[in-house]
């Protein structure tokens, strides 16, 4: 039997799935710009994006200043969260891990809470658009390093997960105390932030998100080979030539920055980081990270744009919290796909 033929056939299948996902993403992206309280036709959206239609000032403003940055923000956030989730699942060799389980988002939430509830500004002007980003980054990286420090001493994954959960509870406890003493207006702002939304995406923020996340998303493709080796376990990876210590730090750095940056702009967006890697595994039928990483990025972007669209339109003019929509849409899909398959994804 010539296995080259089998490989070629498999690669063709992957390319077809990538194409379908890309078409779906583009369609949903244009829909998300087109649909809303003010409806702009598909053709007009494309004309506005290409700079051909400048007459309709309102449509131009809605498309260019509000919906386009929001759509791009949702797309990048979805890609980033899915990738962070996938990296975490490989790192901890556990399929039920996402950044939320380990308290990383709780760290980000705590720091954002400190800023919004107490007015502590870490020496940065309160009006700076970057203050929440920096606060969330400090929170997520801080928790991530605590987890990794403990991880080097505790080999047992369940122990690590419990420690992660405990860190999450600790952060929540501090937040609850802050809430008890905070002013009503600050609490409202903070609670709105914790419900998650992509409505805050302005061009400024999209640019920051893009500058931070795109290089990480691209560089994650470059580490797919050692990530594959890690699937067999750290001992096997080491025996094949992976420099484990440095590689651990690389994964932690990449995933915590991705989680931190998205959480800073959109609040804690649930479900995407946990579920999209599984959805990608089920779609592509493999755990090969060279296939899965681009797959999870595309699928994460597509699903998140779809969920954001739904959050805006489902009970319009009221906008639903994004985390509610992602869980509502994603959970049944996962359950259905798992029931359909004979193979276990873990």
């Amino acid at each position: 039997m010539n296995y080259q033929e089998v490989l070629k056939k498999r690669h063709r299948k992957y390319i077809i799935i990538y194409l379908i996902l890309s078409i779906l993403l583009i369609t949903l992206f244009i829909s998300s710009i087109s649909l809303g309280t003010i409806s702009v036709s598909f053709k007009e959206v494309i004309d506005i994006l290409l700079g051909k239609s400048r007459d309709n000032v309102i449509a131009n403003s809605v498309v260019k200043d509000i919906r386009l940055p929001r759509g791009l923000g949702a797309m990048l956030s979805g890609a980033a969260l899915s990738l962070a989730g996938l990296l975490m699942q490989i790192f901890f060799q556990n399929p039920i891990v996402d950044p939320f389980v380990l308290g990383i988002s709780s760290g980000a939430t705590l720091m954002v809470g400190l800023v919004t509830l107490t007015g502590i500004t870490l020496g940065i002007a309160n009006t700076s658009p970057y203050i929440l980003v920096i606060a969330a980054l400090i929170g997520s990286i801080g928790v991530m390093f605590i987890i990794t420090g403990i991880a080097s001493k505790v080999k047992n994954i369940i122990t690590l997960l419990v420690i992660g959960l405990m860190l999450g509870y600790l952060c929540s406890a501090i937040i609850n105390i802050l809430v008890a003493f905070a002013e009503k207006e600050s609490i409202r702002n903070f609670v709105v932030w914790t419900m998650g939304s992509f409505s805050g995406f302005t061009w400024d923020r999209v640019v920051v998100l893009a500058i931070v996340s795109i290089p990480i998303i691209v560089s994650s493709l470059l580490i797919s080979k050692p990530l594959n080796a890690l699937l067999l376990g750290e001992d096997y990876a080491k025996s094949m030539g992976v420099k484990i210590k440095g590689f651990r730090l690389t994964i932690i750095f990449l995933s915590s920055v991705l989680t931190g940056i998205v959480t800073a702009f959109s609040g804690p967006v649930a479900f995407i980081g946990l579920a999209v890697p599984h959805l990608a595994r089920l779609c592509f039928g493999t755990d090969d990270n060279r296939v899965l990483i681009p797959g999870a990025i595309l699928l994460g972007a597509t699903l998140t744009v779809f969920c954001d669209l739904l959050a805006r339109l489902a009970l319009s003019p009221v906008e639903l919290p994004i985390s509610a929509v992602t869980s509502f849409v994603g959970a049944p899909i996962i359950i259905y796909l798992l029931m359909q398959r004979r193979e276990s994804i873990s």
């Binding site: 060799q93 594959n228 699937l231 376990g233 039928g285 493999t286 755990d287 090969d288 994804i345």
Partner: peptide, 13 residues
């Protein structure tokens, strides 16, 4: 010690 190898084929491993 064996990790759970999810959706990896013999060829891939």
């Amino acid at each position: 010690n064996r990790n759970s190898l999810g959706l990896l084929t013999v060829f891939e491993v």
